[in-house]
Design a protein around this nucleic acid. Structure first.
Lengths: 416, 416
DNA sequence: TCTATTTTTTCGAGCCCCGAAAAAACACTG
DNA sequence: CAGTGTTTTTTCGGGGCTCGAAAAAATAGA
């Protein structure tokens, strides 16, 4: 059963609340924080004075510096960029991308690298990741001790504890405990996240108006992935990252999927499936390993140009996505959708069939009110989400007495 | 954003924790409560002394009265049955069932009634519900003032706020705000719940070992319903009760469903669908309004006896359920399943095709480890869940200072 | 320079939880 | 049957936390 609340948890939680409020609002005054958190001015005053003393927050000008009002001017509180840093590692098909981000969210060092992930050995793959992290940590601009957390993201399935990649389409290797490996190597806490979940996290930071409590991020790429936020929480499976929207069954016994099974949504809507249908290769044809973005854009151009197998391929993709979303909506009710990835740029070709399909389902009752947004480039989104995930983890640690970051500890020593 | 924790919330939450611990454990001693809640003995002592003073808890013998040990004997704490009472109203096809339950969970008054829900007018339906509640409240055994909450359950879709029935297969009427209506009539807080969700709640109380944090309750009845518990929480949609497993799409454009759409899981696995297939009526045939339990049992008997359309009908049901579960598991990962309702008694006929189908899906990777349990009778389960739901609501109110029940207030006055 | 206004800090009061010690309630022992 | 050991429960003092009210601080406008 859930455990009782100890008295000291109180301060810890309220510190967290204040830090979160500052991260969200940018440079709020103490008064604003008091309003958003519902805590009293005295409490906010006490907590923020602690946090400033520990080097986590710093005073500055308020966000609306121009607004000259009567009375004592508000003092803006901001995150101290030097309080800590985090590192993001994004591993996607043939591509490895790493960045170091300061506590305020600015990139301070990055590196990207092409790899042949599909053919690499387990050791080589792990080795490359460790090496690139090491190189960034050795960057003279970086204070190694300030790096408080590493967040990895990978396309594929991760475990609920965010320790390991269980399965990924970008490599034949399975069950790599990346988080444990990096922690052992560098002594920095690490987590292993699912790429689509990070997309969802990023969308929420980018546009909290639209993507607030309930929304869906769907990756339309070589494979089909999903990040789901329900009731303000990232949705995950009971054992794994879950949310394998691409492997819901669209047609029992249908087209051959990259996962080896038949009839998955992805087997109609993934790049390889659109490609296969456009080239009229037959649904039993083994999926191709990769289709370049340029090839997909060319396919979409042809489909727009003339009515032929290309257009039909996109129509089938739309149908599969529509029925899949319909089934999903039967479970969770309709919610705003963000289509991300190269095929999101061809959403005009997908949408008609998608809407038609969704109208045939229980979730489609309000078909017209379901709104879609598109974002053709997934990588920046994944990186951004990863960074925010890592930073909010640090937020959770810094305020937790006894689990101080080094920066926090150092600052505390300075005060004492 | 989530609000800060006020100082007084602490006591409120910890009181809740103690009450919950007592409800779960039966007659735990203070020491046991301290262990399960993680709070200190002194805190438990203080809180339980308050709760006893307010008439919410009562001292008694410990549950294991026989265990004579050295030392001061434990004093068992139990819920005071007279602290409050709740009422459950379960509305199902042609049947209305009401019970009054004391704070310790014992039924103290009940009434059941046959109705013709499918043809009744809106006013008649509401009228019957109000009347039956009034009759129970006028029962001389019942102290009206002690009834602290009413929980209604209905087959169909309810809203997330648990105020109204939005749609139900048992009546052509839609959007009846039963909770508001009963509150207005009797001045007792009420909620409107989905029947399958209540089944899930009941299963958790019945067998917390098996049904703990993640599990699925599927109703195999005239329609197909689902109650889902994920990460220890009842899963609901963003706007409605959600979890409309029966209306996930099994075959796009397939068999005609009672909901008017095509290819839903229910259109293959609901009683009417099994009936339709067994009678070889064709998938476009309008679903029959009702099939009696006896008819379904006869159908199952025939299917067990000989290989014919009856057996094939169950096979098709199994297939639809299997692919549906496969898609569900792709989203949430596999979890224990309880099959409830009359067709659960025919699960032997359903299971082979179900397992075969599920093995074709992403969720079926661990097909053998997915375990099914069956419970042919849904009504007792729904009633029980409803009662527990209402009682835990009361638990949440009694401990919230300022929202005392009448019983709580009276007891407090006596003390003062 | 003074006043009105708004933000921020200070201070005492009131709660709450915890650990340690005391009290209570029994079984066992000789 | 009184004394001893054991376990549960209560009591008590200490340390923290949040809150409201009042004071202090910082500025625009008169």
């Amino acid at each position: 059963m859930s455990v009782g609340i100890r008295h000291d948890d109180l301060r810890r939680r309220n510190r967290a609340m204040v830090i979160t409020a500052v991260r969200r609002a940018g440079r709020p005054s103490r008064t604003e924080i008091a309003a958003t958190t519902g805590l009293s001015h005295s409490t906010i005053s006490a907590i923020s004075s602690d946090l400033i003393g520990e080097g986590i927050l710093a005073e500055g000008k308020p966000s609306e510096a121009g607004a000259l009002k009567r009375g004592r001017p508000q003092v803006g509180l901001g995150l101290n960029p030097e309080a800590a840093a985090v590192m993001t590692v994004v591993l996607s098909l043939n591509f490895l991308s790493v960045a170091v981000i300061d506590y305020a969210g600015q990139v301070i060092s990055e590196e990207q690298r092409r790899l042949d992930t599909l053919t690499m050995s387990r050791e080589a793959l792990i080795g490359e990741c460790v090496a690139i992290v090491r190189r960034r940590l050795e960057d003279p601009d970086i204070d190694v001790r300030s790096v408080a957390r590493i967040a990895l993201a990978i396309q594929g399935i991760t475990d609920t504890e965010a320790r390991a990649m269980l399965w990924s389409p970008i490599t034949p290797q399975t069950n790599i405990a990346f988080a444990d490996i990096l922690e052992a190597q560098f002594g920095i806490p690490a987590t292993m996240e699912n790429d689509c979940n990070m997309m969802a996290v990023a969308l929420r930071w980018r546009d909290p108006e639209r993507y607030r409590d309930d929304f869906i991020a769907i990756l339309l790429s070589h494979g089909i992935g999903m990040g789901l936020v329900l009731k303000g929480e990232l949705f995950t499976g009971t054992h794994s990252s879950g949310g394998e929207f691409g492997h819901m069954i669209h047609r029992p016994g249908g087209a051959l999927c990259r996962c080896g099974r038949r009839g998955c949504v992805e087997a109609y809507a993934g790049n390889y499936a659109i490609w296969r249908n456009a080239k009229q290769l037959g649904e039993d044809t083994e999926p191709v390993a990769d289709v370049s973005d340029a090839q997909m854009r060319a396919l979409a151009a042809t489909a727009r140009e003339r009515d032929g197998p290309e257009r039909e391929a996109y129509r089938k993709a739309g149908e599969a996505l529509g029925y899949g979303l319909g089934s999903l909506f039967a479970l969770i009710d309709p919610a705003p959708v963000a289509m991300v990835g190269v095929s999101a740029a061809a959403f005009d070709l997908i949408e008609p069939a998608l809407r038609e399909a969704i109208a045939q389902t229980a979730g489609g009752q309000h078909s017209k009110s379901i709104s879609f947004d598109t974002e053709p480039n997934e990588l920046p989104l994944i990186r951004e989400g990863c960074a925010m995930r890592a930073l909010t983890f640090v937020d959770q640690e810094i305020f937790a007495p006894g689990v101080q970051t080094k920066a926090g500890l150092a600052a505390k020593k300075n005060v004492a």
